[in-house]
Amino acid sequence: MDPISEFKSKSGLKRIYTAFFYSIDGFRAAWKGEHAFRQEVGLFLVGTIVALVLRVSAFEKLVLIGVLLLVLIVELINSSIEAVVDRVSLDRHPLSKNAKDFGSAAVLLTCLLALATWSVVLYNRFI
Score class of each variant (00 low, 15 high):
residue 31 W to K: 08
residue 25 D to H: 05
residue 127 I to N: 04
residue 22 Y to T: 11
residue 19 A to D: 09
residue 83 A to M: 06
residue 63 V to L: 14
residue 16 I to V: 01
residue 88 V to W: 05
residue 73 I to D: 06
residue 73 I to L: 15
residue 50 V to S: 04
residue 94 P to Q: 07
residue 43 L to H: 10
residue 50 V to N: 08
residue 77 I to M: 11
residue 73 I to A: 14
residue 50 V to G: 00
residue 20 F to L: 13
residue 55 R to C: 05
residue 100 K to L: 03
residue 65 I to F: 02
residue 44 F to S: 08
residue 92 R to S: 09
residue 45 L to G: 01
residue 65 I to E: 03
residue 84 V to I: 12
residue 79 S to A: 15
residue 4 I to Q: 06
residue 52 L to S: 15
residue 71 V to W: 02
residue 16 I to Y: 11
residue 33 G to M: 02
residue 24 I to K: 13
residue 10 K to F: 11
residue 107 V to H: 13
residue 101 D to L: 09
residue 52 L to D: 04
residue 54 L to Q: 06
residue 14 K to I: 08
residue 65 I to P: 01
residue 88 V to E: 05
residue 82 E to C: 04
residue 39 Q to G: 11
residue 69 L to Q: 12
residue 4 I to F: 00
residue 15 R to C: 06
residue 35 H to V: 15
residue 105 A to H: 04
residue 16 I to K: 14
residue 103 G to W: 04
residue 100 K to S: 08
residue 109 L to K: 10
residue 121 V to F: 09
residue 35 H to E: 12
residue 93 H to D: 07
residue 72 L to K: 06
residue 15 R to F: 10
residue 22 Y to D: 14
residue 86 D to P: 06
residue 12 G to I: 03
residue 38 R to D: 14
residue 33 G to H: 13
residue 46 V to I: 04
residue 76 L to P: 03
residue 67 V to A: 06
residue 52 L to H: 01
residue 69 L to C: 09
residue 101 D to A: 06
residue 40 E to Y: 13
residue 109 L to C: 06
residue 60 E to Q: 14
residue 1 M to R: 08
residue 51 A to D: 01
residue 102 F to E: 00
residue 91 D to N: 08
residue 5 S to Y: 00
residue 107 V to S: 09
residue 67 V to R: 04
residue 29 A to E: 04
residue 72 L to V: 12
residue 113 L to C: 13
residue 104 S to L: 07
residue 114 A to F: 00
residue 102 F to Q: 05
residue 94 P to G: 11
residue 81 I to D: 00
residue 122 L to S: 07
residue 51 A to L: 03
residue 113 L to I: 09
residue 37 F to N: 05
residue 58 A to F: 03
residue 30 A to I: 02
residue 44 F to V: 07
